[in-house]
Amino acid sequence: METLDKATHSAHEAFDNIASAASQAAEALGEKGEQLQHAEKQLVENCRSYIRGNPITSLGIAVAAGFLLSRLLSGR
């Protein structure tokens, strides 16, 4: 019985360690997700600000990007 108790105790410890590691990983991923969302919002705001300040240049960039995409995706 003592061996069974030791094995059970070891299994519980291993499970607790795995659960703790999984919890820490989930927390770290949640923090990184929040950081990515903040970075995305900042990037969108920077783009909007640039477009407001440089509408003609922005239009030229959009036309050039559309032209390049159409050439790449045309399949010729």
Rank of each mutant, 00 (worst) to 15 (best):
M1I: 02
D5C: 04
K6W: 03
A7Q: 11
A7Y: 04
T8G: 06
H9P: 05
H9F: 11
H9Y: 13
H9I: 10
H9K: 12
S10W: 04
S10C: 06
A11Q: 12
A11D: 05
A11F: 02
H12Y: 02
H12M: 11
E13F: 06
A14K: 11
F15S: 01
F15P: 04
N17H: 11
I18E: 12
I18L: 12
A19N: 02
A19H: 01
S20V: 07
S20G: 08
S20W: 08
A21R: 04
A21Q: 12
A22W: 01
S23H: 00
S23W: 03
Q24K: 03
Q24T: 01
A25P: 00
A25E: 07
A26M: 09
A26Y: 02
A26L: 13
A26H: 09
A26T: 01
E27L: 05
A28G: 10
A28E: 00
A28L: 01
A28H: 00
G30Q: 04
E31G: 07
E31R: 07
E31D: 00
Q35Y: 09
Q35K: 15
Q35L: 14
L36V: 13
Q37N: 14
Q37K: 15
Q37L: 15
H38W: 08
H38S: 15
A39W: 01
E40G: 00
K41P: 06
K41Y: 04
K41T: 14
Q42V: 14
Q42Y: 05
V44E: 14
E45I: 05
E45W: 09
N46I: 03
N46W: 01
C47N: 11
C47R: 14
C47I: 15
R48A: 05
Y50S: 02
Y50Q: 06
I51C: 10
I51M: 09
I51Q: 08
I51R: 12
G53I: 05
G53C: 02
I56F: 00
I56G: 03
I56K: 09
L59V: 08
G60K: 10
A62N: 05
A62D: 01
A62G: 08
A64R: 00
A65L: 12
G66P: 00
G66N: 06
F67P: 06
F67L: 13
L68F: 11
L69T: 05
L69G: 07
S70L: 12
S70Y: 07
L72I: 12
L72Q: 13
L73T: 13
L73Y: 00
L73M: 10
S74R: 13
S74T: 08
S74Y: 07
G75N: 04
R76K: 11
R76H: 01
